[in-house]
Amino acid sequence: MDMFFQDAAELAQFTVAVIKEGVRPPYEFREVLNQCYETGIKSFILVGITAFILGLVLIMQSRPTLVEFGAGSFLPAMSSVSIVREIGPLVTALICAGKIGSGISAELGSMKVTEQIDAMEVSGTNPFKFLIATRIMATTLMIPVLTLYAILIALTGAFTAASITDQVNIGFFFNRVFDTLKFSDVIPSFTKTFFFGFAIGLVGCTKGYNSKKGTEGVGKAANASVVIAMLSVIVIDMVVTRITAMLGYL
């Protein structure tokens, strides 16, 4: 219990510090781009493959039940709402929490245990601005973009599965997909991905920056980062869904 509150306090302090350092010039654009490349481009293949398979499996699993109820024609509508509202953002965030969150935590932890961060401070470089704010900015910006790709690839996977089992025309499929979607599906879904990205970056940086001395501490920090980031993503998802429902969009 103490650990929970300790982690919560660390996260709160970090959030305040990151926002303060992030908005204050000078800005580290080059490092932000570098981190965007690391988090966005290097996660794309993993996110893409996962999204395609999930779209494929979603249709393969749902089709028998829908066909049994005589609602086979609802497959595109069902898959679009599922993927856009929940599967795309959540799966992308969880994969990124595992890959990017642990990577950031391990990298910062290693820098911490090897005293590179201390050296940066001595050399006059603000580690919060250069290491932390840029990474959090990168995850906050890249996870929504990755989510867009994940949704498109998952819908392609869904279409592939539908065209394997049934003779589905691509025009018909995507027409039904966009016919079903509303702004009330797209906007909350897209908005929450920014919060997912921020949470993943924040948790990864917090755990890495505050890791204890030694390689064991780096491992623990990476592990804790993944667990807390995934939990944060799910909690944020629940809160956003609740807020969306309260606003009458569900």
Partner: peptide, 20 residues
């Protein structure tokens, strides 16, 4: 990567908007 993502998003918004 980012531009293509944004273009896809705009196309998606346009399509959803057209249906709405």
């Amino acid at each position: 990567f980012v531009v293509v993502g944004i273009v896809l998003f705009i196309i998606g918004i346009f399509l959803v908007g057209a249906k709405s």
